[in-house]
Design a protein around this nucleic acid. Structure first.
Length: 278
DNA sequence: TGCCAGGCCGAAA
DNA sequence: TTTCGGCATGGC
């Protein structure tokens, strides 16, 4: 990996191609917005940044030190995706899927934000999920000034824990609203600890988080993969069932892999973008 | 108007 | 253990 510092940004060259569009639109996150100039704007851990790709290199505003402190981990720069991609491509279908989604990185997102966004995601569509998350941040998140614009951090569990469903009515999240509040209360009370979940096996962490209201297998696995970076979590949802049916191969070899979650993103992104099974 | 959107819950079989 | 209706909301 080679890191080059420019005046206002850093560029990261590596063997692993990075695609901002694939990474931000493959369904793992809902807060990166494409700007008119082609860059993507996001807020992570209360820090705003602009990101773009240049011939497969990751480019991000800020300094080398800021990159090392947050973004290197967030963009999973020390994982060998090229190798994972190759290991997934065992036949024509998987080779096509892997090649198509080769620029995807599994982001190291904040666990709390990830849990909330996937509670919101259930029985919902991506544009509406994005809109609800944005209303949540603008309504209850701390303001952040960036390039002359006011952006918002994701609201803390402490903030949401003391709200009522009627307080959150402007969110228009429907029956998911009580799920957000009770999850926040579980964090604040110590009933659920992300630090403890990190130390557990994927199966144990899954059992724990599924005790929350509104968290089933699908939401749990998306949280484990995208929020806790447990790469072997494998969400079995409608799209994956369609992908599996279309693939008609041996899914077990992928489900049992330590990189099952990365594989499922290649599957999901490929199947969704090609409208397979629609 | 009706269906569907990266589901989950609780009851009934 | 599996199946199924209900749950809020909004786009098509």
């Amino acid at each position: 990996m080679q890191i080059i510092q420019y005046k206002n940004h850093v560029k990261i060259h590596s063997e692993n191609p990075f695609s901002a569009r694939q990474t931000f639109t493959c369904g793992q996150c809902f807060r990166w917005q494409e700007q008119e100039d082609g860059r993507w704007r996001g807020v992570v851990c209360g820090k705003a940044a602009y990101v773009w790709d240049d011939h497969g290199a990751l480019c991000i505003t800020g300094t080398h030190a800021q990159f090392d402190a947050l973004w290197r981990s967030y963009f999973d720069c020390d994982t060998d995706y090229a190798s994972i991609c190759r290991s997934f491509a065992v036949d024509e279908f998987t080779a096509n899927a892997a090649a198509f989604g080769a620029g995807i990185r599994i982001l190291n997102q904040e666990p709390w934000e990830t849990l909330c966004t996937f509670l919101i995601s259930q029985c919902n569509n991506i544009p509406r999920i994005t809109a609800i998350v944005q209303r949540l941040c603008e309504g209850w998140g701390e303001p952040i000034l960036s390039e002359g614009q006011t952006l918002y951090a994701f609201p803390t569990p402490q903030t949401l824990a003391q709200l009522s469903p009627s307080d959150l009515a402007p969110l228009r999240a429907g029956y998911r609203t009580p799920y957000l509040i009770s999850a926040a209360q579980a964090i604040v009370s110590g009933e659920l600890s992300f630090d403890k979940l990190r130390t557990m096996s994927t199966a144990d962490a899954r059992r724990h988080v599924m005790q929350l209201r509104g968290v089933g297998r699908k939401v749990a696995d998306c949280f484990l993969l995208f929020g806790l970076h447990k790469m072997d979590a494998f969400p079995v949802d409608t799209w994956m069932k369609k992908a599996a049916a279309y693939y008609n191969g041996d899914m077990k070899q992928f489900v049992d892999s330590p990189f099952a979650g990365v594989y499922q993103q290649y599957f999901f992104y490929y199947v969704r973008e090609h409208q397979i099974g629609k």
